[in-house]
């Protein structure tokens, strides 16, 4: 009777073995091109990370306040200052800079890949039909699951961290770029054609500017997801605030874990407010219409 009631004690598929050999196989043939793809990411990341860490905190504070003031006004500047000061005061400055550099690199990558994909999806129903289930699938997967294949293919460290962050965070940008372009009022596009605009001109002169608020909302989500993933990626030995938390928990060092956690909260508030202001700035004209 027992084999019938508890079949899984007697029979399991060796799925772990299969996937391992499948991955081995992919790694065998894909290693060289994958490493080649990793190299520019690494270079770019080093550049940004080196820059952010080299900047003296005072300069960083002045810079963030200036950007905040320029984007929206003194309130945003104040929020930026408070967040960064707090991060500095609790001693998480360097870790925060490492995390921010990973977020920044991954967001740039997301824009480079996601924006064109979103535009393509908006222009071709067929492409969108293929892309949509992929995006749905990517969005259903918990952040954790991304780590396994990325480690197998790219190894551990900051550059694979950027890649996994990018994979995890790119979907909203693609989705909302597509949506934003499709939502642009039909007659405004038609009017542009009617006055002799070319396809490229309609895209860059009419559709993208009018879709801007939606695209920037997507960018905001992408930035926040990047931060989430940059923290989770500490499990594949990515440095920064996430590692502070992880190591703190591992060593039962409650203080260090709290500092890391608070740093993450502050960083999240900071990037959220700043990217939202990016959407609101100068877009007073973007959404109006008749």
């Amino acid at each position: 009777m027992d084999p019938l009631l508890n079949p899984f004690d007697y029979f399991t598929l060796p799925f772990g073995d299969w996937s391992e050999s499948a991955l081995d196989w992919i790694v065998d043939i894909g290693r060289a091109p994958l490493l080649a793809a990793k190299a520019p990411v690494q270079v770019f990341l080093n550049l940004i990370q080196g820059g952010l860490i080299a900047v003296p905190p005072l300069v960083g504070l002045i810079f963030i306040a200036a950007v905040g003031f320029f984007l929206s006004g003194w309130r945003l500047a104040l929020i930026g200052l408070v967040c960064l000061c707090f991060i500095g005061l609790i001693g998480a400055w360097e870790a925060a800079m490492i995390t921010l550099s990973i977020v920044l690199t991954s967001v740039v990558l997301c824009i480079l890949v996601g924006l064109p994909l979103g535009i393509l999806a908006a222009r071709s129903d067929r492409f969108f039909r293929i892309l949509r289930p992929v995006l749905d699938f990517m969005q259903t997967m918990p952040s954790f699951v991304y780590l396994v294949p990325v480690v197998m293919l790219f190894g551990i460290g900051d550059a694979p961290g950027v890649i996994v962050t990018c994979l995890f965070a790119i979907t909203p940008l693609i989705r909302l770029t597509n949506l934003g372009i499709r939502e642009v009022r039909e007659d405004m596009v038609e009017a542009a054609y009617a006055f002799g605009a070319s396809e490229t001109r309609v895209l860059f002169g009419t559709q993208l500017p009018l879709a801007r608020p939606t695209i920037l909302a997507g960018l905001n989500q992408t930035v926040l997801l990047s931060l989430t993933m940059a923290v989770v990626a500490s499990m594949i030995s990515v440095g920064g605030l996430g590692r502070m938390v992880l190591e703190g928990i591992g060593r039962l060092d409650f203080g260090s874990a709290t500092v890391g956690g608070l740093g993450i909260v502050m960083a999240a508030i900071l990037v959220d407010r700043y990217t939202q202001a990016l959407g609101a700035a100068r877009s007073g004209r973007g959404s109006g219409g008749a």
């Binding site: 405004m188 038609e190 009017a191 002799g196 605009a197 004209r285 973007g286 219409g289």
Partner: peptide, 29 residues
């Protein structure tokens, strides 16, 4: 494109002015 830009002018029911351009830029498009 030349025919559309030079020979034919079109007016739309819901105006279809581009909100991100000034009136001048709209008119001179």
């Amino acid at each position: 494109r030349e025919l559309r830009a030079r020979k034919i002018g079109m007016v739309f029911q819901h105006m279809a002015l581009w909100p991100h351009k000034t009136i001048s830029e709209n008119v001179a498009f």
